[in-house]
Computed example of a mutant assay.
Amino acid sequence: MRWLAELSLLFVALIWGVTFVIVQQAIAFLPPLLFNGLRFLLAALLLFAIILFRKETAKLTAKTWKHGLILGVCLTIGYAFQTIGLLYTTVSKTGFITGLSVVLVPLLSLILLKKRPALNAAVGSVTAAAGLYLLTAGGAGGWNIGDFFVLIGALGFAFHIIYTDVFTQHSSALTLTAVQVITVAALCFIGGFLLEDWHSALTAANLTNPSVLSTLLITAFLATALAFFIQTSAQKYTTPTRVVLILSMEPVFGALTAFFWIDERLTAAGLTGCAFIFIGMLLAEIPVQKWLNFRSAADKS
């Protein structure tokens, strides 16, 4: 069962990586917050319809709502700033900066949960930070406001990873996913109506635009409802470390999609930065110390 869960997570990473390109195209017509509000609202309607169909409303407990609201706030920060960042930076840079959430997790765990990061996690964080510098300031167009927004989004995703690992032990995957998704929809709509020009954005012409409509459907049902349900469910069959490691393929899929779809290319320094970030993500999750101890024991024998 574990191989099926991990294969499903790889599929999630592929979906998220591919959607960087189509989301960037869609937000040319709909502003970021309103786009995410519509995306998550459609996903929430599907999830709550499934809950009603399966007669699982009793599982929508007070604890599930509390945990789902916290996860929803983290996701709102992640998706809102990531989507806004796409207005100002490239798909490839967005994917790899978002991937830094993997190496931010051990640092936040130290602050929030008082868990000291392993040596490999610390080395991975430094390696990824060097890669971030090369990617953004060292030859991929320079550091810009879009990169900063995406980095804030990566912090939101890192908090989401930490709290998901804790909260999935107390609620069903379906109800917890539904609550966090409807929370993101509500918060994005509030922000969109307050900060964006919703009068000119929410028009029939924009909403029926093939690029916008197809992106909303793909991101709502595949990249949101299905993807977060898989992520929440898979932790029952595999470890959080393996979950994060598999999802670290997301920026790689994003960069490959940008290359083949819109011919987006990175400079040599940018490619080196991408490699550093990916290596850092791997180092942050591979149990190097256990491997070294195993090799040492094998040599002695």
Score class of each variant (00 low, 15 high):
292 L>R: 13
266 L>A: 03
13 A>E: 00
41 L>G: 07
188 C>W: 00
10 L>P: 01
125 S>N: 08
180 Q>V: 04
298 A>L: 15
27 I>Y: 00
46 L>I: 10
110 L>F: 13
271 L>W: 15
171 S>G: 12
27 I>M: 01
34 L>S: 07
299 D>K: 14
222 L>M: 14
6 E>F: 10
28 A>H: 13
93 K>T: 07
296 S>K: 15
260 F>P: 03
180 Q>A: 02
53 F>A: 15
85 G>P: 05
250 E>W: 10
228 F>H: 10
1 M>S: 13
223 A>T: 06
69 L>R: 10
205 A>D: 13
213 L>F: 15
86 L>D: 00
32 P>V: 02
282 L>E: 08
140 A>P: 03
162 I>W: 00
161 I>R: 08
61 T>V: 08
297 A>M: 12
137 A>I: 06
130 A>M: 11
282 L>W: 09
206 N>K: 04
24 Q>C: 11
297 A>L: 11
79 Y>T: 01
167 F>T: 01
115 K>E: 12
260 F>S: 05
95 G>C: 08
105 V>D: 00
227 A>N: 06
116 R>K: 15
84 I>A: 05
234 A>F: 07
201 A>V: 07
140 A>L: 05
291 W>P: 05
5 A>C: 12
100 L>C: 14
192 G>F: 02
158 A>W: 07
290 K>E: 14
222 L>S: 14
49 A>Q: 08
128 A>P: 03
69 L>T: 12
124 G>D: 03
86 L>C: 09
35 F>G: 00
119 L>N: 09
279 I>H: 00
75 L>V: 09
151 L>F: 15
5 A>S: 15
107 L>K: 04
191 G>V: 05
4 L>K: 14
198 W>G: 00
188 C>Q: 07
76 T>I: 06
68 G>A: 09
